[in-house]
């Protein structure tokens, strides 16, 4: 009989190999590409850092990177703040229907990615649903022009798209919370607000950080939202990457932009995890 480890590796080898071949392999190729140069249709494989110089030095790319990071940071913070009370409600007051609540909240996330973004275009447009509602209510006298095709439109749409993703990790950490700690705090005379601030929130912080990351990472690289509702001011780094692999046909530069994005996102993620650990050490 083979050892348990060998059998484990054998069973997991097929999916692992698939991920290695179709994910890790291609990412290594992209990394290699980012150090090359493209001359029309031929790729010059001499090592160069020019693409990174362009990605970080040229104002257009630097601004796009910075803007994408800003958007994804705002989106993740907004999403998490709005999602926390919902996760809290389901975990503490969901009763037997917890699973159903989670299902109801996650369903929109799975349905019609493209169409939900289109829907925001319809809502935020000049003659859109929001403008006509505000006009009808007499809040405004002329339609607002700045709703659609702006950075705000991108932020609203992304925050809506990723709402469910933020709730899940927070919910899981709330479920793991030992409820007797809250009873102990109550017995010691702590009111509900202090119970929340001194027990619930610190202990569910890992879930909050996970939620921030799980929203931040995909939103940095979102392509469709800026394209459909962002207009000129809402262009993000993914759009620039796409142009390099499409019309502009400069793969190495596109690769360098992609790698830079990945590195910056990973660094921000690492920083957040470090901050969490520091916080925990201070709490002890």
């Amino acid at each position: 009989m083979r050892s348990e480890a060998t059998r484990g590796w054998l069973v997991i080898s097929a999916p692992l190999l698939y991920a290695l071949l179709l994910l890790i392999g291609p990412i290594i190729v992209i990394l290699a590409n980012s150090f090359w140069t493209q001359d029309y249709l031929t790729i010059d494989r001499t090592f160069t850092l020019d693409n990174y110089r362009a990605a970080l030095g040229e104002p257009i790319y630097r601004d796009l990177l910075f803007r994408s990071l800003k958007v994804s940071a705002i989106v993740s913070v907004v999403t998490v703040i709005l999602a926390y009370p919902v996760a809290y409600f389901i975990s503490f007051h969901g009763g037997r229907a917890k699973g159903l609540w989670i299902f109801i909240i996650t369903v929109p996330f799975w349905t019609g990615y493209l169409l939900r973004i289109l829907s925001w275009k319809v809502i935020l447009g000049y003659k859109g649903v929001l403008n006509s509602a505000l006009l009808g209510l007499g809040v405004i006298s002329e339609p607002l022009e700045t709703l659609l095709y702006s950075l705000n439109a991108v932020i609203i749409t992304l925050a809506h798209s990723w709402a469910a993703f933020a709730i899940l990790p927070i919910y899981v950490s709330l479920e793991k919370l030992d409820r007797t700690l809250l009873e102990a705090a109550a017995d010691l005379g702590q009111g509900p607000i202090r119970q929340f601030l001194r027990v619930t929130l610190p202990l569910t912080l890992p879930g909050v950080i996970a939620a921030l990351l799980i929203v931040m990472i995909p939103t940095v690289g979102d392509y469709v939202t800026p394209k459909l509702v962002g207009g000129k001011d809402g262009v993000m780094i993914a759009n620039a990457i796409q142009v390099q692999f499409g019309k502009a046909s400069n793969w190495p530069l596109g690769a360098a932009l992609a790698v830079t994005t990945m590195i910056i996102v990973s660094m921000s993620a690492a920083l957040m995890v470090l901050a969490l650990q520091l916080f925990r050490r201070l709490m002890k």
Binding site: L23, V29, I30, P218
Partner: peptide, 16 residues
Amino acid sequence: PLFLPEIIIAISLLVV
């Protein structure tokens, strides 16, 4: 793949 921007998965696959 859950934790990577989709555009990066897409372009790296495309290039390969």
